[in-house]
Write a protein that binds this DNA or RNA. Sequence first.
DNA 1: GCTTGGGTTTCGCCGAAGTGAAGCCTGGCT
DNA 2: AGCCAGGCTTCACTTCGGCGAAACCCAAGC
Lengths: 167, 167
Amino acid sequence: MEDVALVRWPDDADRLAALRAAGAPRLLLVAPDAAPPAVVDPLEDWVRLPADDAELAARLATLRARGGAGAPAPDLDTDGLLHYRDRWVALSPVEQALAGALTERFGAVVGRDALSKRAWPDGTPTRNALDVHILRFRRRIAPLGLELRTVRARGYLLQGFAATDTA
Amino acid sequence: MEDVALVRWPDDADRLAALRAAGAPRLLLVAPDAAPPAVVDPLEDWVRLPADDAELAARLATLRARGGAGAPAPDLDTDGLLHYRDRWVALSPVEQALAGALTERFGAVVGRDALSKRAWPDGTPTRNALDVHILRFRRRIAPLGLELRTVRARGYLLQGFAATDTA
DNA sequence: GCTTGGGTTTCGCCGAAGTGAAGCCTGGCT
DNA sequence: AGCCAGGCTTCACTTCGGCGAAACCCAAGC
């Protein structure tokens, strides 16, 4: 995993420029007597030296979270395992079909019909069959930190927890 | 101009929740003995009390810059989802029609008749129908930090929170 | 052959959401 | 006072999705 770069300010100003250009997350360690830099980029932050350990850790965590927050799609491997953020679960055949369609369009709406067609290429059993598999799929992926949200009359949308609303 | 909210942490936790929901920029003033909060949102930052004036000013400037950064119009996608600042909600068909008209003229007044025509191309049900949908639309978009303001006898105007004129 | 167990499908019912119709409330204006 | 544009609630009705429970199917093992 890409980690946050630590940059002394104003000493390492050139390196900072490079990091900014590369869009890499970075934390400036500001010399005791230097003026705080003008920050706008969410991937940049700063602390004044000497820095408190807890503060340092907290700001690094923030930058890491922002840096990695680029919609990391779950991955369905050839063994029918669905991987997401260091964790995985085994899926049944029908669930694999659903997961395939949903991860390919991670974060976007996939119609019920598209899911049906994917799971049962030659004819859906009944309307409810999909419902039940959706239900179980939801429960199956919850431990991974994934949720399947319903968009009424449109379909379903796979996303990570809290990618949108609040409690 | 919208300004950055100052929130004592952890004392004003409820107010913080409201500000987060509204997508308003805020700076947490963290009590000397409290743990730093877990921040991800670029519109949120924190300083430990007692705070240095220069640090306070610098972080406020950062948040102002991020907060004011462009007034992006909400986006209604083809799935009937209304996106605004990293968040989204699903809209019902009638609401999609209203949202379409209102986002196309984001920040400007749209007449009731224009909205009616958009939602019901061949005839409005009753005069009252629009009122009800306006009401529901308001509640639906509030979590995104959007509000629909009335311009009496003229129509309605969609805007982000706190793009206010008077107090 | 029979059992067992996972996966799958059916059935049936419930709750949630979308939509309008009516009616009442309110605040501003004449 | 009375009018009028809106705001908001309540009710009825419909459609869509959620979900428990039980039946089914089929392959592996006894």
